[in-house]
Each structure stands twice: as structure tokens, then as C-alpha cells.
Simulated scan of single mutants.
Amino acid sequence: MEVSKIDAGRDETCEHTGLHPEAVARAAARVGALAHINELAQLFAAFGDPTRLRILTALRSGDLCVCDLTAVLGMTASAVSHQLRLLRNLRLVRSRKVGRVVYYHLDDEHVLNLLAQGEAHIRHD
């Protein structure tokens, strides 16, 4: 990530040694209230993997089977299936069977929104 010229000279440490009790209490309450922090970390880890992110992005276009995804991603069916299993366990994708074909799609609007927000963030000046 590129550091702007304004931020380049700033030190990441606090020159003030005293605490700000109200700010600390607010932050501690917020952190303590997030009971599912490990699940949230796993969710964001899934978005941090380029292969899984490519699968999620491909599924934004609509339902795809494993064979479709292998063609889009240039990966083996085994590799795609492995990633889909991880994504399904994190409730990022769902599947539906039509005859002998299993189609995958994004689990819900939250996944679509997370992808859209991430794209908006990286495009933001």
C-alpha cells in the first residue's frame, strides 16, 4: 500500500503517555461485545485469499457449476471444489442440485454487499 507524502513522516506511536478513559471504555465495550470475533476473522480471511475471491466474484454474475468455474478460473475441478467447500462452510456460497448438476451461488445479499463495499473502497481516492 502506498503511503501518501502527508502520512510518510508521521510516527505510528503516541507521544502522549496518559490514557483517555472514555475512549478506552468505548473501544473495550465494542471489542467485548463482538462475541463472534473468530468467525469474523475467518470470514475476512476468506476474502483475503485470491482464489476464493475470484470464485466469489465469478458467482456475482449468477449461478455456476464446478465445470463452469473451472473454465472461468483455469483451475482443476478438485481445486475449485475444495475452495467451494470452504466458502460453503463460511456460509458465503450455497448450492442447489438440478438433476445431476450442482450449481453454486452467493449465499445472500450480505456477501454481494461485502464484495461491492470492498471494490468501492479500493476505487475510492
Rank of each mutant, 00 (worst) to 15 (best):
residue 41 A to I: 08
residue 78 S to E: 05
residue 6 I to W: 14
residue 54 R to C: 03
residue 39 E to I: 03
residue 13 T to W: 01
residue 101 V to D: 09
residue 97 K to R: 13
residue 46 A to M: 05
residue 22 E to N: 05
residue 23 A to Q: 15
residue 33 A to C: 07
residue 110 H to K: 10
residue 103 Y to I: 04
residue 25 A to F: 07
residue 11 D to Q: 11
residue 75 M to C: 07
residue 42 Q to V: 07
residue 67 C to A: 15
residue 104 Y to L: 02
residue 22 E to L: 09
residue 89 N to L: 09
residue 64 L to G: 03
residue 83 Q to F: 00
residue 57 T to R: 12
residue 109 E to R: 11
residue 30 R to E: 03
residue 125 D to V: 13
residue 20 H to F: 13
residue 26 R to E: 07
residue 1 M to H: 13
residue 122 I to V: 14
residue 61 S to A: 13
residue 108 D to L: 07
residue 4 S to H: 12
residue 92 L to F: 04
residue 55 I to W: 03
residue 5 K to Y: 13
residue 98 V to T: 14
residue 63 D to P: 05
residue 124 H to N: 08
residue 5 K to P: 13
residue 12 E to P: 09
residue 124 H to D: 10
residue 60 R to F: 02
residue 106 L to D: 05
residue 73 L to N: 03
residue 68 D to K: 00
residue 125 D to I: 10
residue 71 A to P: 00
residue 20 H to V: 09
residue 29 A to M: 08
residue 12 E to K: 14
residue 20 H to K: 15
residue 67 C to D: 08
residue 109 E to C: 06
residue 18 G to E: 15
residue 58 A to D: 01
residue 108 D to P: 06
residue 87 L to W: 06
residue 34 L to N: 10
residue 100 R to V: 12
residue 109 E to K: 12
residue 90 L to R: 05
residue 2 E to D: 09
residue 56 L to C: 00
residue 94 R to E: 13
residue 67 C to P: 04
residue 14 C to G: 14
residue 115 L to H: 04
residue 29 A to I: 03
residue 15 E to D: 10
residue 49 D to L: 01
residue 53 L to N: 01
residue 14 C to H: 13
residue 125 D to F: 11
residue 78 S to P: 02
residue 98 V to W: 13
residue 51 T to K: 08
residue 99 G to A: 08
residue 123 R to N: 07
residue 57 T to W: 01
residue 43 L to W: 00
residue 97 K to A: 07
residue 115 L to M: 05
residue 25 A to Y: 08
residue 48 G to T: 05
residue 82 H to A: 01
residue 39 E to L: 04
residue 6 I to H: 14
residue 56 L to G: 02
residue 125 D to L: 12
residue 34 L to K: 11
residue 110 H to D: 09
residue 10 R to N: 12
residue 95 S to E: 11
residue 69 L to D: 03
residue 37 I to E: 07
residue 56 L to M: 09
residue 33 A to M: 07
residue 48 G to F: 05
residue 37 I to R: 10
residue 54 R to H: 12
residue 96 R to Y: 11
residue 75 M to F: 05
residue 52 R to S: 03
residue 92 L to C: 04
residue 76 T to S: 12
residue 65 C to Y: 00
residue 99 G to C: 07
residue 73 L to T: 04
residue 64 L to W: 00
residue 118 G to Y: 08
residue 86 L to T: 07
residue 98 V to K: 13
residue 25 A to W: 04
residue 108 D to Y: 08
residue 15 E to P: 02
residue 80 V to P: 01
residue 116 A to Q: 15
residue 61 S to F: 07
residue 12 E to N: 13
residue 19 L to Y: 14
residue 84 L to F: 02
residue 114 L to R: 06
residue 24 V to Y: 14
residue 51 T to D: 06
residue 2 E to F: 10
residue 48 G to I: 06
residue 104 Y to H: 11
residue 55 I to G: 00
residue 13 T to Q: 10
residue 22 E to H: 09
